[in-house]
Simulated scan of single mutants.
Amino acid sequence: MKRPEPKPIISDDEREDYEASENGEWVSVGDIETQRALWAEIARATLDGKRRRISIAIPERDLARLKTKAAEKGMPYQTLINSILHEYIEG
């Protein structure tokens, strides 16, 4: 008697990624080397100099949208907030 082929086991995250890919929901980030260089520069700028923790209160909806944008860019949301503030200050 022949054994049935085992079904591949995938995680929920892998299944969601697959479904997103199949549904055309993935968005290309463009040239990956350019993106790496950009985020490396942002990380260097973020880490340079003394840092000071602050606390702010923002609406939950805005925080959720920031987290979504950060996830799309593949970065922590705090880093995105920091880069937005830095860009604003630098004009």
Rank of each mutant, 00 (worst) to 15 (best):
P4R: 06
P4M: 09
P4S: 02
E5D: 04
P6T: 03
P8Y: 08
I9D: 13
D12A: 07
D13S: 12
D17A: 12
Y18T: 07
Y18N: 08
E19L: 07
E19S: 07
E22I: 09
E22R: 15
E22C: 13
E25D: 12
V29P: 10
G30V: 11
D31W: 06
I32G: 04
I32H: 04
I32M: 03
E33Y: 01
T34R: 14
Q35Y: 09
Q35T: 05
R36Q: 10
R36W: 08
R36V: 11
R36C: 09
R36K: 15
R36S: 14
A37T: 10
A37R: 15
W39I: 13
A40K: 09
A40W: 04
A40C: 00
A40R: 12
E41M: 08
I42D: 01
I42K: 03
I42C: 05
A43Q: 10
R44V: 04
A45P: 06
T46F: 07
K50A: 15
K50C: 09
R53N: 04
R53K: 10
I58T: 10
I58G: 00
P59I: 11
P59T: 05
P59Y: 08
E60K: 14
R61D: 10
D62Y: 14
L63K: 14
L63P: 06
A64H: 13
A64V: 12
R65M: 13
L66W: 14
K67N: 11
T68C: 10
A71C: 03
E72L: 05
K73L: 02
K73R: 08
K73S: 05
M75Q: 12
P76D: 10
Y77K: 02
Y77D: 03
T79F: 15
L80W: 13
L80R: 07
I81P: 01
S83F: 12
I84D: 00
I84G: 05
I84Q: 01
L85S: 11
L85F: 06
H86L: 08
Y88P: 02
